[in-house]
């Protein structure tokens, strides 16, 4: 009788042992994602910049010095969940938040956003699959247009499906722009991949992290200037920044630490 009880559990053990590597990795990634999700909102409240100090050891001179440097230019930070989509979420939130007080830019941005779906469809994206994502994007812009509050925006961005749909659409816009300007961008792609392959492997799938090339493409696709402050272990004691596209007047300020983007406020 004891044997009979043991049987199924033994089978389970073997099943676990025989997990394919991919499946095991995926399961682990899921667990990590879940852990990250419970401890980080998709987009946080605005916090004093000094919260950064606590994230690094006091004797971590490189980072403490750079945080001090950051304080000279910025006062607040808004954190995003480190799930590989943080650039798009940070960009989306930061820009829409800025549009709350800038009706002229809002007008221009809405027109660009409205037209963008047609561009994608002409390029060969399937209309009925992308229109839900586009609608979500337009709905968010509408919140701003109707004089919604920052809380309204924050709620929308913290609703998983709304927030993810926005990310999907911003990814599609990035991919669309990279492919339209493929002649230029293909020189920057590593591994002998075509621009199309790059977009399908590194841009369109969720959770794929963003690099310079993604930021340039999205900034140009929507004609929004983005400034990124780079804070890493490099020597020098100061935080370097980069404006996309170069020489423009930035509207969106992001803090980059290896693998992650947060939003900065003056």
């Amino acid at each position: 009788m004891a044997e009979e009880q043991q049987d199924p559990s033994q089978g389970d053990m073997e099943g676990v042992n025989c997990l394919a590597y991919d499946e095991a990795i995926m399961a682990q990634q899921d667990r990590i994602q879940q852990e990250i999700a419970t401890s980080n909102p998709l987009v946080s409240d605005r916090q004093e910049l000094s919260v950064l100090n606590k994230e690094y050891a006091l004797d971590d001179i490189v980072y403490q010095q750079k945080i001090k440097d950051l304080h000279k230019k910025y006062s607040y930070i808004r954190k995003t969940r480190p799930d590989g989509n943080c650039f798009y979420r940070a960009f989306g939130f930061s820009h829409l938040e800025a549009l709350l007080d800038n009706s002229k830019e809002l007008h221009r941005f809405k027109a660009v956003a409205a037209k963008s779906k047609l561009d994608l469809v002409t390029q060969g994206f399937t209309e009925f699959t992308i229109e839900d994502f586009h609608n979500t994007f337009m709905d968010l812009i509408e919140i701003v247009e109707k004089q919604g509050t920052i809380t309204d925006l924050l709620n929308a961005f913290n609703d998983q499906s709304t927030s993810d749909y926005l990310v999907v659409y911003l990814r599609l816009l990035t991919s669309g722009y990279l492919q339209r300007e493929g002649g230029f961008f293909e020189h920057f792609i590593e591994g002998g991949r075509s621009i199309k392959e790059f977009c399908q492997q590194e841009v369109e799938p969720m959770s794929k992290e963003s690099d310079h090339i993604h930021i340039i493409a999205l900034a140009q696709a929507l004609n929004v200037s983005i400034l990124v402050e780079y804070m890493d272990r490099g020597e020098g004691g100061t935080v370097n920044h980069h404006v996309f596209p170069e020489g423009s007047d930035p509207h969106v300020y992001l803090l980059y630490r290896p693998g992650h983007y947060d939003i900065l406020y003056k």
Partner: peptide, 22 residues
């Protein structure tokens, strides 16, 4: 199919050819 496969497991040689999920 996981439960079906329990009986098969001993015959599978390399772990990366299996498709088990929890």
């Amino acid at each position: 199919s996981k439960s079906n496969e329990m009986q098969v497991l001993p015959t599978i040689a390399s772990p990366d050819s299996t498709g088990e999920t929890p």
